[in-house]
Computed example of a mutant assay.
Amino acid sequence: MARPRTFDEEQVLRDLRDRFWDAGYAATTLQDLMRISGLGKGSLYGAYGDKHALFLRTLKAYNAEGKEGTRATLESEPRAIDALRKVLVAPVGPGADRGCFLANSTCELATEHADVRAEAKQTYDALADLIAACVERAQRDGDLLADEDAGELARTLLTAQQGLVYMGRAGTDLETLRATARVLSNRLLPIA
């Protein structure tokens, strides 16, 4: 009879995700995963599968949290335009040099791993859909031109936001990131 699990699975997954996030997939070893989780190889694989399955699980959990966080941000402001600005500049702040786990993982693995590429595409498409709905609300409010394609603007905003993520990851200082975010916001979401 199998013994019941006696560890906080969600906390272990967050800790393992952070290792993948900080070191990258290739540089994260089985020994790292065992040390961080406190599990032996058999228990780790029994609970999560192999390294790649574990990585995908942490990535999917991160993406689910990110989509929910984006949804909450987009619904947090009375004016949709203000919520859109908030989402656009979200990557600018302390920790910007860490980047985004999804973006980092996509750069490292999407070329060779179709499942990572598919997960990234699904997540970015879902984020663009959330942003497009907020763009449509801003159009109804009269804060954005009604004849602009909401989907195109949403993908443009997401691309601009991810550009800020990559600049932060590359070590661009916060002052420069803030100035860049301000210009992007003013150009893409002009104040009415």
Rank of each mutant, 00 (worst) to 15 (best):
E148R: 15
D129L: 13
A160E: 00
Q139P: 05
T156H: 03
T159H: 08
D149Q: 09
E148H: 10
D147M: 12
A154P: 06
A146F: 13
T180K: 03
T156W: 01
E175M: 02
D141P: 02
C134R: 14
T172S: 12
I131W: 05
R140C: 03
L184V: 03
A138W: 10
R169C: 01
L144T: 09
S185E: 08
Q162A: 11
E136P: 00
L184H: 07
Q139M: 05
L177N: 01
A150Y: 12
A170F: 04
L184N: 06
L153A: 07
L158D: 04
A181C: 06
G168K: 07
E136A: 13
R178Q: 11
V165T: 12
D141H: 12
L158S: 02
Q139T: 06
G151Y: 09
V135A: 01
L158I: 07
L177C: 03
G171Y: 02
L164N: 01
L153W: 11
R155H: 11
E175P: 00
L145I: 08
V135F: 05
V135I: 10
A146N: 05
Q161V: 02
L157A: 06
D149E: 14
G171D: 04
A138I: 02
Y166K: 13
D173L: 01
A170K: 14
V183T: 08
D129F: 07
T172A: 12
A154Y: 02
G151M: 09
L153F: 09
G151R: 14
G142P: 00
L153T: 06
L174K: 09
R155W: 07
L158G: 01
A126Q: 10
T156K: 06
I131K: 02
Q161D: 00
L130T: 08
R137N: 01
E152M: 13
Q162Y: 11
T156L: 14
V135E: 02
L145D: 15
A160R: 00
A150R: 12
I131Y: 06
R169Q: 06
D129M: 12
E148K: 10
A181P: 00
A170S: 15
R178F: 06
L145A: 15
Q161W: 01
L177G: 03
V165W: 00
T159K: 06
A128E: 10
A138V: 04
Q162R: 14
